[in-house]
Computed example of a mutant assay.
Amino acid sequence: MNHRTAPVEIRERFAVPSHRLQEEGRCIRSLPDVDQCVVLSTCNRMEIYYWSERPENAQEHILSHFLGTGRGNVNMGAHFYSHLGAEALEHLCRVLSGLDSMVLGETEIFGQVKTAYQMALDAGVTAGCANKTFQKAFTIGKRVRTDSQIHAGATSVGSVAVELAEQIFGDLSGTRVLILGAGDMSRVTGRALRARGAEGIYVANRSFDRAVELAGTIGGQAIRYDVWGDYLKDIDVVVAATAAPHCIITQETLLPLRAARKYRSLFLIDISVPRNISPDVADIDEVYLYDIDTLTQLADEAKRSREQEVSRCEAIIQDNISKYFPDSALYDQ
């Protein structure tokens, strides 16, 4: 099952935490008619890859293992999918390539599949066929990413903002960030900035407790809302996402700070509605301003670009399946 076939309240019933992947793999391997297996469990999918001389029987045992006596309470046709032989191999390659992900072309899934396979290998629940299949599937997944643009461009507002910041500063290592507001958009953008090297992150919110909470999750420091203006002279990036009904950063806010800032670049990310930053601050030479509409437009353009790459990726997968997996090789033990 995955994010398209089952809602989170169903997926969470079958999720396997990473520290239990080996144990779960051994349990499934011990079921009747299961010869080899790999368990893949992420926030968006739960999949069992298995090898069997009687795959239909093995599937029934696997489903009973997870569902037990509650099988009648689950909509089997709606939530589960099953692929056999070449179709299963194609699905694995699509997963590795990011074609089956919630965010088309995302790269995290490749590492998650590698971890799942390594766990199965360490648990001793794979053998020649599984090992050969996954190793060659990894090669195909890499080929897709090398020979296409499926991963190009940022597809979320937070990631777009970070890419733009990197274009301005070149390297975000050591940059100082001020986050105004402690909602979900602030959290996502703050984490993305931290992941790219931002070091000094300050969080200000009218509710100080919420500022403390957000700062704790992104490795930042909470400051009182009434003093955030004192920090602007040393800040490189401002993320504005408050519920204020008016602009809280204007030309009058920034112009007096230019000399103290030594005319350094300042990147302003306004992801609030109504806007928190006056549009005319972009007229200041060293100030770069992007609002929610611009960021969303750039993210949508990247999504459309990735969608146009899908057919190319699928062709690469098919060509390489034919190259690496002649029909008989799918079933060789």
Rank of each mutant, 00 (worst) to 15 (best):
H79A: 10
H79M: 08
H79E: 01
F80V: 00
F80K: 05
F80P: 02
F80C: 00
F80Q: 02
Y81H: 11
S82L: 13
S82I: 00
H83I: 00
H83E: 01
L84P: 03
G85I: 04
A86V: 10
A86Y: 11
A86K: 12
E87V: 01
E87F: 01
L89F: 05
L89I: 08
H91Q: 05
L92R: 13
L92M: 10
L92C: 02
C93I: 01
C93N: 12
C93V: 01
R94Y: 13
R94P: 03
L96V: 03
L96D: 07
L96G: 05
L99M: 02
L99D: 11
D100N: 02
D100T: 03
D100A: 14
S101E: 00
S101I: 01
M102G: 06
M102E: 04
V103R: 14
V103F: 11
L104D: 03
L104T: 09
E106H: 09
T107G: 05
T107A: 12
I109G: 15
F110T: 01
G111W: 09
Q112M: 04
V113N: 13
V113L: 07
K114N: 09
K114A: 15
T115H: 13
T115S: 03
A116E: 07
Q118M: 15
Q118D: 07
Q118W: 06
M119T: 04
A120F: 03
A120S: 15
A120T: 02
A120H: 13
L121I: 04
L121E: 15
D122T: 14
A123L: 03
A123Q: 10
G124C: 10
G124Y: 08
V125S: 09
V125D: 14
T126P: 01
T126F: 03
A127C: 07
A127K: 15
G128F: 09
G128I: 04
G128K: 13
C129H: 14
A130D: 05
N131W: 04
N131R: 14
T133P: 06
F134R: 10
F134A: 04
Q135F: 07
A137P: 03
A137W: 06
A137I: 08
F138E: 11
F138C: 06
T139G: 08
T139I: 00
T139F: 07
T139Q: 07
I140R: 12
R143F: 09
R143Q: 15
R143W: 02
R143Y: 07
T146A: 08
T146E: 11
D147V: 00
S148L: 00
S148K: 02
Q149G: 13
I150P: 08
I150G: 15
H151L: 04
A152Q: 02
A152C: 06
A154P: 11
